[in-house]
């Protein structure tokens, strides 16, 4: 599903990514790990076209998104769910409206929106909080709303950039378990994290970045595997 070939991202004189080659198959669960500044976030941003590689190709679903014109970027992002460390929820809107926002813009009927939103909130266990505002929720709950929003359009790919970065261990575990359940439904999940406990617990494929380079790529790996 995803192929990165000789991807390099350079900011002025600094290399964020250096000659990265990576293949991710449909239905995989992949942890991208590494210390701060290793290039995890840059890699994730390349996948949802927030950044463009300085050289190399980023193929998603057979399309080189490095060449994707800016007006087609929304079409790409509609095909994937994105989860951020800081949740990025609309603070003045309810949980329901936050989850429904993007699919409303697609012209889907109110009945279908209702069904999809309630379905997504059920997956993340927030069916009883549909009217709550983000400020009334805990960090873990807010991140679950963000996951519900990411899966509401039924994307084949979910990208989570440090989803547990702002959460305590209990909430981190809940969020990771939800992402695991989503993966079991056939959705490709890519999670960038430096939470070693989570990586070690779930034993998924682990891609390790160091100074912008892929130094390890291990199936059912751990955070600090030799």
């Amino acid at each position: 599903m995803i192929q990165l070939r000789s991807v390099t991202k350079k900011y002025k004189n600094t290399y964020a990514l250096k000659n990265v080659n990576l293949d991710i198959l449909s239905g995989e669960f992949v942890f991208i790990v590494g210390a701060s500044g290793a290039g995890k976030s840059t890699l994730m941003k390349l996948l949802y076209k927030e950044e463009t590689p300085s050289s190399g190709t980023v193929m998603i679903g057979g399309i080189n998104i490095a060449n994707l014109p800016s007006h087609k970027v929304p079409n790409l992002r509609c095909c994937m769910g994105i989860v951020f460390q800081d949740y990025k929820l609309l603070q003045n809107q309810s949980v329901y409206d936050n989850v429904a926002y993007v699919i409303r813009t697609l012209g889907i009927s109110t009945k279908e929106i209702n069904a999809r939103v309630l379905g997504a909130l059920k997956v993340v266990g927030l069916s009883d909080k549909i009217k709550a505002k983000p400020s009334e929720l805990s960090g873990g709950e807010q991140q679950r709303v963000s996951i519900a929003r990411a899966i509401v359009n039924g994307p084949p790919l979910l990208i989570a950039d440090e989803p547990t970065g702002n959460l305590d261990p209990k909430n981190s575990m809940e969020v990771m378990q939800i992402l695991d359940q989503i993966n079991q439904r056939g959705i490709t999940v890519i999670v960038s994290t430096h939470d070693s406990a989570m990586v070690d617990y779930f034993r998924k494929r682990v891609v390790t970045l160091e100074n912008g380079e892929v130094v390890r790529d291990i199936q059912a790996g751990t955070y600090e595997q030799q």
Partner: peptide, 22 residues
């Protein structure tokens, strides 16, 4: 899923008039 992404990203999918109206 790969075909699905390609189809959606490559071109604007024409929608029915009711969807456009919404």
């Amino acid at each position: 899923s790969k075909q699905n992404i390609k189809k959606k990203v490559k071109k604007h999918i024409p929608k029915d008039w009711l969807t456009e109206l919404r």
